[in-house]
Simulated scan of single mutants.
Amino acid sequence: MSKLPIGQRLIVAVFACLIDSAFTFGFNLVLIPNMKQPITDWLKTMHSNVDDKPITTSAGILGYTVNPPLIRLLHAFIFIGSSIGGLLSIRMAKKVGRKGGLLMTSFISAFAALFAGYSKFFESSLLLFIGCFLIGIKIGISSSLGPLYLMEISPNKIRVRVTGLFSLFVTVGVLASFFICKYIGNKDYWPLVFSLNVIPAVIQLLILPSCPESPKYLSVIKGKELEAKNALKWLRGDNYNEEEINELRAELYQRRALGVLTLKDIVNNDVLLHALLISTMISDSSDRVSLQENGRSFERVKFKYLGMILMSQIKLRKFRKIAICKTVLPEKEKMKCISSSKV
């Protein structure tokens, strides 16, 4: 990998990160909805007899019928796993690093593909649920560490564009999932679609170990300035300059002086509180927009545009008012509360 031209090294590192974090995220996000019918039919077959009676009434498993609760439970396992993975990513980012955490998710993805892919062969719905749970954990970890790694290895001039590739690859993964499920996501081959998760995992395991760890992690978290400088030289080549390492050194000194920030420190700091409220509002609106099955798209979209306006125009004291409105008031009264606040 070190023999590659300098410009191509960053491209390879970015691709190695995206292929099994962003792409797999999008691919698995819509996998079960795209194969809902064949998976539901198989679950019916697996749980068709309780006291020699088909499960078609409220006498079924846990008092429910197989269709649709089990398929919904299967989807829920992914989201439960992603929540746990998101929490784990915080500690993993500090303990094993950004690159180390991404490599660990490749193994998780491989095991998930193994469990879910062989569930039909072994006639075990438990394997399918375990596989979906592992997929969720992988999504939760990689969706946090992936953008973080991209941001920290990218030059300042193109950092936003490189980090934005994560969203692009998520969309590509969703599109790939749709076409693959359309052609082979049937009653005979749906386990094969789950097994395809192993391909991005193998690609990442082959390429990412040759790429350096995040320079910021090495310098600021671990205090290894020499290794951080070597990582920057690998990534930048002739474009390497001391300014980046000086910025990392200054951040390290600041971290040692201030210590670890707590939530109380953020709330008491106007600048940090400003950024926290903006990011929370826009993140919340993005999640709402992405889940439109309840038909209240306007209620979700309005906070996205409101956040964009707030980012450039509204003063900090109005942020506090809006944060309170958004937290404690019903959906219909939030806009009235926000519009009544004065700058």
Results as ranks from 00 to 15, higher is better:
14 V>Y: 05
181 C>D: 10
287 D>T: 10
105 T>Y: 02
119 S>I: 09
205 L>V: 03
242 E>L: 06
128 L>S: 04
307 G>Y: 10
16 A>Q: 02
103 L>S: 05
287 D>P: 00
285 S>E: 06
203 I>P: 00
41 D>V: 02
288 R>L: 13
269 N>H: 14
108 I>M: 07
290 S>I: 02
145 L>Q: 02
214 S>W: 02
102 L>S: 08
283 S>L: 15
250 A>Y: 07
112 A>W: 04
18 L>C: 11
160 V>H: 11
144 S>Y: 04
160 V>N: 14
240 Y>P: 08
210 S>R: 08
213 E>A: 05
219 S>N: 10
297 S>E: 14
314 I>A: 11
61 I>F: 13
263 L>H: 11
147 P>K: 01
166 F>S: 03
147 P>Y: 01
180 I>R: 02
28 N>L: 00
52 D>S: 14
193 V>D: 03
34 N>E: 12
304 K>D: 03
265 D>P: 07
276 L>Y: 11
214 S>Y: 01
213 E>R: 09
131 G>K: 09
16 A>I: 02
63 G>P: 05
231 A>R: 13
148 L>Q: 08
253 Y>S: 12
259 G>I: 09
122 F>Q: 08
214 S>G: 03
24 T>P: 00
57 T>C: 04
115 F>Y: 14
91 R>H: 12
63 G>F: 06
238 D>R: 11
119 S>E: 06
211 C>K: 02
241 N>S: 15
213 E>L: 01
267 V>W: 04
53 K>Y: 07
161 R>N: 12
133 F>D: 05
308 M>H: 10
110 A>F: 12
276 L>C: 12
322 I>H: 07
104 M>R: 05
163 T>V: 13
237 G>R: 06
98 R>M: 06
236 R>N: 12
314 I>W: 10
285 S>H: 04
119 S>A: 15
32 I>M: 07
188 D>T: 12
1 M>H: 10
251 E>P: 01
44 K>T: 00
171 T>K: 05
164 G>V: 04
40 T>G: 00
272 L>K: 05
11 I>W: 12
43 L>E: 03
273 L>H: 06
130 I>W: 09
78 I>L: 15
22 A>Q: 01
318 K>M: 15
235 L>W: 09
22 A>G: 08
161 R>Y: 08
262 T>Q: 05
109 S>G: 03
158 I>G: 00
182 K>V: 01
